[in-house]
Design a protein around this nucleic acid. Structure first.
Lengths: 325, 325
DNA sequence: CTGTTAGCGCGTTCAG
DNA sequence: CTGAACGCGCTAACAG
């Protein structure tokens, strides 16, 4: 595999000139420029990008940390990131963590080792103190509300949107309300939990632990939920569901069991995934792709200019009223 | 940022010894080993992985070329790749192409530039001759039937499975059959088209162009299809649908329009995505995650050992008979 | 067991 | 406009 030195020899110029030509540096005499390109052609030369990375101390790669690659929630964020990365000729290195701290640390270490120029954290389990350790090593953007912590962040206010959905159910006459969530830890989940407790207590209703369904991520989890719900001696009349996938599962499996939506069970979901529309599920639209896009922009802008326009950005949600309540 | 030389000085050893310690090379005296780790600790040292890549001529990164990151079909393949990559401590660099040849070329170029050690092509538009150009630059695995061409490949026989589904419909008495597909070009799509024409002609039925629905990828495309279907003066009585997402859209939007499945319209779909089960869609299960896993293994094994166990592997599909026919 | 040294391939001053 | 030379940080062959 030819290298820049061989090209230089072949073209009868120095390596510096080759480098200039290769990188479109303007002040090179026409004839030398042509000679270089000819040599490149003749020797079938290609840059070794690792050498470029080493010499420049930069890779134009952004790391993306997420628990699962094949879930519509993260898929949508990833899509947003990817679209914007494409525009700016950046590449994406995937760090699937399965919510394993070890894997998360590996992603962070990869930034320290200069494998990636920055890191977008879509979701995590590692504590703040752990992530803070890596702040010197490159820009980190989190897709969650980081509160007062000194991090870049693009987020959806899950407290607010959860509370809003809850108040909607309450307005519609519901008092017995449960919810389904992907996990119980994590910033977003905690925010929703707090919203749940706060809002119910405001109307003097005691929240019930057995009405909280954990590990709800996929369509099939909806099947489990509706069956558990049916087995409950005291049933909630409404459910807040953190994912349209799960809501679809609940609605569809519920139908097979003769559960009437919304009469037997009302549902408000989140995402506004296309599946929710024909199912007539009332849902809170989350701008996931936009969040990814903005996260990339934030990090990109920081890398390219060294400064920050807006440290934290809250994205608006949109309530899609349909007929599952 | 400290480098290996500074560590060597601090620990009072040579850079080679530092490298040995860092990489777990066994024959280093205990005390020197400790001295190195102490220096590492003290100077807060981390390897620059780009230097490692350059020196070794290898990155332990595999490129994944796919058109869309947020589609369940590719998400499932990606999941399989990712899972296996995780096991072997490899990383994944994402190349989203949107079926743009330029983007595909970029991915291939990245392998030539040694950014990635190998490339998994989940789907592509570039011609064989284009891809062949890069065979010298690293292992390429395709997730499609490459026929006689000299490529590594793990694939699902779409001709066979499409024909099988078609014959099932025919056995059930259908003669007017159409199909929905993501795109009309590409190996897999061509295989299905051929299967369609071949099988129908075998029973003396003339295929109809207006019963072929293109650009069917997402739930919302099912909405379009069912409306187009309704507007048809002569309607097919059955539809083969290349994706469960689209099938779900057809079924659900169809219900809203009063279309009875299977009486008005029978459906056989592909994937066996969890959404198809509560919808009772008869579907052909495609081992997508497995395909990803096997693709990774193939490339991994080649990279690590330099030889190939099985060049091409066909994966079995499973027919899930439910009640949409 | 350990140190020396020659690469790996490119970017980037700094003279001229 | 151009070239020499050094730096990026690490690996691995070789000598001892």
């Amino acid at each position: 595999m030819a290298n820049i030195r061989e090209i230089a020899k072949e073209a009868g110029v120095s390596v510096a000139t080759v480098s200039r030509v290769l990188n479109g540096y303007p002040y090179v005499r026409e004839e030398k420029r042509n000679a270089v390109w000819e040599a490149v052609e003749k020797l079938n030369y290609t840059k070794n990008i690792n050498a470029v990375h080493l010499a420049k101390g930069k890779t134009s790669i952004i790391g993306v940390m997420l628990p699962y690659v094949n879930h519509p929630y993260f898929g949508a964020i990833l899509e947003g990131i990817s679209k914007e990365a494409l525009r700016h000729r950046y590449h994406l290195l995937l760090f699937q963590t399965n919510y394993d701290v070890e894997k998360e640390l590996e992603a962070l270490e990869m930034m320290r080792m200069k494998q990636v120029d920055g890191l977008i954290i879509c979701s995590h389990v590692a504590g703040w103190n752990v992530i803070e350790e890596y702040k010197e090593d490159g820009p980190i953007v989190l897709c969650e509300n980081v509160g007062d912590k000194d991090f870049l962040s693009v987020y959806i206010d899950h407290y607010e949107s959860f509370a809003k959905a809850l108040r909607y159910l309450i307005r519609k006459g519901h008092r017995h309300i449960g919810y389904c969530i992907g996990r119980t830890t994590g910033t977003n989940s905690k925010a929703r939990e707090t919203a749940y407790y706060d809002t119910l207590r405001q109307i003097g209703v005691e929240p019930r632990k057995e009405w909280i369904f954990d590990h709800c991520l996929y369509v099939e989890d909806g099947k489990r939920v509706i069956h558990q719900w049916m087995d409950l001696s005291e049933k909630p009349s409404a459910l807040l569901v953190s994912s349209d996938q799960v809501a679809a599962g609940i609605v569809l499996w519920g139908r097979k069991e003769g559960v009437k939506i919304p009469d037997d069970l009302a549902i408000v979901s989140f995402d506004n995934h296309p599946i929710s529309e024909p199912l007539q599920i009332t849902t809170m639209e989350l701008p996931l792709a936009l969040m990814g896009t903005k996260a990339f922009r934030l990090i990109y802008h920081y890398i390219e200019t060294g400064n920050i326009v807006k440290k934290k950005e809250k994205l608006p949600v949109r309530f899609m009223e349909r007929s599952s309540v």
